[in-house]
């Protein structure tokens, strides 16, 4: 017992010593000059590479050209993010895809402009501020690898049924398998679309993008045929040669609000979700309180003008995900090389 006690005292002293050393160290170090308060913003960095790049471009310009200090927190997309912004925990986030978030319908109360035209009007409660489009326009489709398209001669979605056995797996039985839109909360309604178009496939929801892409990647490496739901721009297309099956054009139909609240009311193959997706004019969004402040007027003006293009993002995606380079390094290099592309986004 006595020995234990001795040892315990020793440990207590050791801890005390460390604490004192820490305090000593702290008091010695000259305090950093506090940054001017009114030029700081807190950004949410997305958890998928495209979103990260868009956000890093915005952050880099705000920091390099406009003298902002941006605190960055990696925050997986989803409902939590919207609530965090509404609560003012975060100031802004980048690249929301309207097809995938119900939150924008509920939380925005503004017109979405692209090239000066109104693309969509939102009539929510305005708890989150729509800062303008990012410039990236997303499109979604079902894709098959080029080797499979050439082998079977599949030209469009109408040919899929003929080769459904090639696309079948143990789980899907005699139907083909679609590696579907992975997250239930995104409201892609793959199975509904397949049924309405008469494609005899089974849509499997794998829960995360990573899961869907991992299966697709493994299948590609084994040169097996597979049908994959995916959007562009996406790094997957930089690494693997895929062909879209070209789903029918998107057409609106009156009163079609295919949501849970509306009891999944559809108007058949004429409207969403039976046909293709609408174009996703992706947007940046932020906390209304923060961007109403006069000191952030310039940041708001910047976000309104920002217009990052698909090609640019795709090029950077390849650098980051396939050549495994650091995002910040890649973004800064792009900014240095292409000043003409982003100078016009700066507020006057």
């Amino acid at each position: 017992m006595a020995e234990t006690k001795n040892k315990n005292i020793g440990i207590i002293i050791a801890v005390a010593v460390i604490v004192i050393a820490a305090i000593f160290y702290f008091t010695q170090k000259p305090k950093e000059v506090a940054v001017v308060e009114d030029k700081t913003l807190h950004a949410a960095i997305a958890d998928w590479t495209g979103g990260i790049i868009t956000c890093e471009v915005a952050v880099a310009i705000l920091e390099r050209e406009m003298g902002y200090k941006i605190k960055q927190t990696v925050f997986p997309s989803g409902t939590g993010l919207w609530e965090a912004i509404a609560a003012g925990e975060l100031d802004f986030a980048c690249e929301s895809w309207p097809s995938y978030a119900e939150a924008d319908d509920v939380m925005f109360n503004e017109d979405l402009l692209y090239d000066g035209k109104v693309v969509k009007s939102y009539k929510g409660d305005g708890t989150v501020d729509l800062l303008g489009t990012t410039g990236i326009i997303g499109t979604s489709d079902y894709w098959i690898p080029r080797y499979a398209a050439e082998k079977f001669g599949i030209k469009s979605w109408k040919d899929l049924n003929k080769y459904k056995n090639e696309f079948a797996t143990i789980e899907s039985g005699d139907k083909g398998r679609l590696i579907g839109c992975p997250v239930a909360g995104w409201n892609c309604h793959d199975q509904k679309r397949l049924d309405l178009l008469g494609i005899d496939f089974q849509a499997d929801e794998l829960g995360t993008e990573a899961a869907a892409i991992a299966e697709a990647k493994a299948a590609y490496m084994r040169e097996e045929p597979f049908l994959l739901y995916l959007w562009t721009p996406h790094w997957f297309f930089g690494e693997f040669d895929m062909v879209g099956v070209g789903l029918p054009e998107y057409a609106t139909c009156e009163g079609d609000t295919f949501t849970e609240a509306n009891n999944w009311k559809t108007c058949g193959t004429d409207g969403w979700p039976a046909t293709g997706w609408d174009k996703d004019y992706t947007m940046n969004y932020g906390n209304p309180g923060t961007f109403a402040k006069p000191e952030h007027a310039k940041a708001k003006a910047f976000f309104e003008k920002m217009k990052f293009e698909n090609n640019d993002q795709s090029a950077l995606l390849v650098e980051v995900d396939i050549n495994k380079r650091d995002v910040k390094e890649v973004v800064n290099e792009w900014l240095d090389k292409n000043p003409d592309k982003w100078k016009s986004w700066l507020p006057n």
Partner: peptide, 21 residues
Amino acid sequence: VTPLIGGKGLGLEVFNGLARS
């Protein structure tokens, strides 16, 4: 955790609940 890789059942139900807040 399994719904992240395609599991079904109650776990998926938790995620669906969270996705819709």
